[in-house]
Design a protein around this nucleic acid. Structure first.
Length: 429
RNA sequence: GGAGAGGUGGCCGAGUGGUCGAAGGCGCAGCACUGGAAAUGCUGUAUAGGGGCAACUCUAUCGAGGGUUCGAAUCCCUCCCUCUCCGCCA
């Protein structure tokens, strides 16, 4: 959420920055409401102060010996009643304005960082760096896509997944299930060793949690909802992790707080019909290990780089070629001020594919979720950052395509052997 | 699901209509004492919003929302949450 003071004082700045996202917001109405609410508050609190004075005066008179129902007190009572009525009126109006204002502000996305490059859409994103050699088919060699390998080796069962749930759900079997579990453990161990605190949060979250991290109110159609319970299936661990400290004031000395969490993630993928219909790339339910930082505002730039490096470290340990993309202003997510996407090389598909998205949100989520830090005597909003470290299904896809061998087996990176118990996947019954 | 208890400041805990943003304690910070520390003493120590260059000041907040009253942490109503016991259950 944006600062309503900024809206009052300099709406042009907001418009200028949101224009970079390709938006053309009309903030005049919202600004007027913000100013009105402020003026109303001034008048109301002035009246309340007067009412308080009268209340005290009554107490003093009575203690001073005046009759509680005498004329002197009655006059004050009358005054008090008039003020009370007026205050009630103003309060109601003020409350309405503030609700409208908040609703409006909750709909506005974060402002892009100064450092975020200009651009309209994903074609304007900027490649920052590459790591590793993309595997290309040798002469006479044809590389399979991961879903072909997975089906052939019996790692997944697509048809039965539809029977159990519906399309865009997957069932992993045997080595496939084991590999998924190995990847989760591997990543959590790695991040824990790097100082992240491991969290296993609820994956049903309430509306306040989704609002805090920015999924609501705007993107309700993207999440699965348990209508009877004010609970939603979390679309990413970013949601419960943000709310881990919702409505808290953290001591500056304990920052940064860094968390890593494995959760299943649930997304409706509305509007993606026909895209990535096969395999592990786009599912309603997928596993992800998330990285999350709460830090002081001054630290967030360095934190963003470090968090991204921590995600890249997983890819490097798994010997998977990738590139880092910086998203342009027009391609940023709702809550993000600045984002690096990591794209892993899918050797069979012959393309780079997003496997992690590492964002700094500035104080945008902190304001929504009321997360502050105490700095000396003052408190102020802190900064939050999140990133995948990594999406498990897509990691498995990349491993299958990257490690496929002429004999049909798949060679796994050495780092996984202790977790998976073998250095390769072979055909199973 | 049944029965009961309870939600007050960073924590514990007092407060049942009036000057209470709230005693006392703990914790924390500063100062004094000390060679240094402990102990001790003194002082300070909530959040949000508004106004002000600032000192400061106004308002609200004792789970949430409504009500009674000139005045509510305190009385009334509704809701939420937590805890304990029983039942059920991985």
């Amino acid at each position: 959420m944006l600062d309503q003071r900024l809206l009052r004082d300099d709406p042009e700045l907001i418009i200028r920055q949101l224009r970079r996202r390709g938006l053309e917001p009309d903030l005049a109405g919202l600004q007027r409401i913000a100013l009105q609410a402020r003026d109303l508050e001034e008048e109301r609190s002035r009246l309340q102060a007067e009412g308080n004075r009268i209340g005290k005066a009554v107490g003093e008179r009575i203690r001073g010996g005046a009759q509680a129902d005498g004329p002197e007190v009655a006059e004050l009572r009358e005054q008090g009643n008039r003020i009370k009525q007026r205050v009630a009126l103003l309060e109601e109006e003020e409350k309405g304005l503030e609700q409208t204002l908040r609703d409006g502000l909750l709909e506005l996305p974060n402002l892009p960082s100064e450092q975020t490059p200009e651009g309209r859409n994903e074609t304007d994103n900027i490649e920052v760096r590459r790591w590793g050699e993309p595997r290309l088919p040798q002469a006479g060699e044809s590389l399979e896509e991961h879903w072909q390998i997975a089906e052939r080796l019996g790692l997944v069962d697509t048809e039965r997944s539809v029977r159990i749930a519906q399309s865009r759900f997957i069932t992993l079997l045997g080595q496939g299930a084991r590999l998924e579990r190995a990847l989760i453990s591997f990543m959590l161990d790695r991040h824990s060793a790097a100082g992240y605190r491991e969290v296993l949060p609820p994956i049903l979250v309430n509306t306040a949690s989704l609002t805090g991290s920015g999924q609501l109110p705007k993107f309700a159609e993207e999440s699965f909802r348990c209508a009877e319970d004010d609970l939603w299936l979390t679309p990413t661990a970013e949601v419960p992790l943000t709310s881990l400290h919702r409505d808290e004031v953290l001591a500056a000395e304990q920052l940064p707080l860094r968390y890593t969490a494995y959760t299943p993630c649930f997304r409706r993928e509305a509007g993606s019909y026909g895209r990535d219909t096969r395999g592990l790339i786009r599912l309603h339910q997928f596993n992800k290990v998330e990285l999350y930082w709460f830090c002081r505002p001054e630290e967030s730039d360095a934190a963003h780089e470090q968090l991204t490096r921590d995600a890249e470290g997983v890819l490097e340990a798994l010997e998977l070629p990738y590139r880092r993309i910086e998203l342009c202003s027009g391609d940023l997510g709702f809550s993000a001020a600045r984002t690096y996407d990591l794209e892993v090389w899918l050797a069979g598909a012959g393309t780079y594919r997003e496997i992690s998205s590492c964002s700094t949100c500035g104080d945008f989520q902190a304001r929504r979720a009321a997360i502050r830090c105490r700095e000396g005597k003052k408190t102020r909003l802190l900064h939050t950052l999140n990133g995948s470290g990594l999406a498990i299904g897509r990691t498995m896809a990349a491993l299958l395509e990257h490690g496929q061998q002429a004999d049909g087996s798949v060679l796994l990176p050495a780092a996984l052997v202790p977790y998976f118990g073998s250095d390769r996947l072979v055909a199973q019954d």
